[in-house]
């Protein structure tokens, strides 16, 4: 989640200085390459390259770990399943492939400001203008989504705590209803705040 929510780490590394578009294109190419790499040895080399990129970026170990941490159980499960249906080398390579792709995507968000990603996206979405869509609004939608992830996550934590305090821990309905109501209320307030900040002028 942290990787999703603007965990930009300020810095002056070459990776920070690359334009957002170049990084995104690089990410796409690398992920394709990861899919095509078969031999585990090649993937091991890829892992070293990714680690080197992280070292160059200077974001630190904590930030790096935060990128892959959310998928650690998924990676473990994937490894287990692959071990059963394939063999050890197959399990190692498919797990490594997923983890490396996520680490690379995380590296892009760690070294790119959301504003730069948005500006790039806005340029890419420029053709949408012909379909009657406003590229600025589309990229704003993306920012609002990024901003809303931690807000709703926090809301979910508060609801869970409130349920626990009242001893209704296991009821999905007692969790979902206040969460949805809270999310809708947040959406309402956000709309009002955008109007107050002059979005519709």
């Amino acid at each position: 989640m942290k990787g999703l929510t603007g965990a930009y780490v300020p810095g002056g590394s070459p990776l920070h200085r690359l334009p957002a578009g170049v990084k995104l294109a690089g990410l796409a190419v690398c992920c394709t390459a990861l899919l095509l790499l078969r031999p585990p040895a090649a993937l091991a080399v890829a892992a070293v390259v990714v680690a080197a990129l992280y070292a160059v970026s200077g974001v630190g170990v904590t930030a790096a770990w935060a990128q892959v941490r959310p998928v650690r159980w998924f990676a473990l499960a994937l490894f287990g399943v692959q071990l059963v249906v394939a063999d050890l080398s197959g399990a190692v390579s498919s797990t490594l492939r997923v983890v490396l792709a996520i680490a690379l995507a995380g590296l892009v968000t760690l070294t790119t400001r959301t504003a730069d990603l948005m500006a790039f996206l806005e340029r890419c979405l420029a053709p949408a203008r012909f379909a009657g869509l406003d590229p600025y609004r589309l990229s704003l939608l993306l920012s609002l989504t990024l901003r809303s992830v931690p807000v709703v996550a926090e809301l979910a934590t508060r609801v869970r705590e409130a349920q626990r305090a009242r001893g209704v821990e296991r009821s999905p309905r007692a969790f979902a209803v206040p969460l949805v109501v809270g999310a809708l209320r947040h959406a309402d307030a956000l709309g009002e705040a955008l109007a107050a900040r002059g979005l519709d002028d």
Binding site: T5, G6, Y8, R113, T114, A115, S143, L144, L146, R147, V151, E154, H186, A189, L190, E192, A193, L194, A195, A196, R197, G198, D200, D201
Partner: peptide, 28 residues
């Protein structure tokens, strides 16, 4: 629209009015 440009509004709940993911971006 003209009035909102001259009247700033601060809500009770800051989470609702911070619309950008990072601090500087929200001010920008």
């Amino acid at each position: 629209a003209r009035i909102r440009r001259g009247v700033g509004f601060l809500f009770t709940d800051p989470d609702a009015q911070i619309v950008m993911p990072t601090v500087a971006e929200d001010v920008a």
